[in-house]
Amino acid sequence: MDDLIRGIIQAFEIIFSLNPALYEVIWLSLSVSGIALVFSTVLGIPLGAAMALTRFPGRQLMTALLYTGMGFPPVVIGLFVYLMLSRSGPAGQLGWLFTPKAMIVAQTIISFPLVAGFTMAAVMGVDPHLRRQLMSLGATPWQATVTILLEAKIGVIVAIVAGFGAIISEVGAVMLVGGNIEGKTRVLTTAIVLETQKGNFDLAIALGLVLLLLSFLVNVALLRLQGKAFS
């Protein structure tokens, strides 16, 4: 208990100490997860929308795969990316292992099914006759799709929030493929693991608080976007 209270007090001291190493870790966390989220959003929202709005052969299989992907253990994805990017792996030439690129790849794979799956569910929740209605008002297929996505906005933002939550808090995969290299691939979660292992519980708690605060702020920002859906 003492540890926790002392940790929380010290956590704030550390946060306001403007220590460059700490901000480097925070920045890397945000940028790696942010870029991964952009990729998984750019891939996931169209896929989710397409799967909700169109019928094509193999759609059922795709849906099953997507749902499996949503529940896939991130560390297994990390292992997969590791084996791909390893010196002896098929993509070893890239030299991406233990760089932020590898972490972005892993996080994209982790969050992409979440974004796509939740988007699909959200779009499927929109009135099925809406598309016909929009086409009748003169929408192009693309305009209709965009309008439907906007109608599903709340659900689509939940999809993005879920994707972000999954990767900003993920530790196993980034540890495996990033290697937790100080100043290069060390992010908040791996730093927390490290400080805990070093017995620096105060610092670990501080980092944990920063992580909580960050996800909170990002979620508030996303939800503000969502709020506009009602205006």
Binding site: G179, I181, E182, T190, V193, L194, Q197
Partner: peptide, 14 residues
């Protein structure tokens, strides 16, 4: 010089 903050096993792997 790269500091990875991990155990011996992981360090050998890296």
């Amino acid at each position: 010089y790269q500091s990875i903050g991990q155990g011996m096993g992981a360090t050998l792997t890296v």
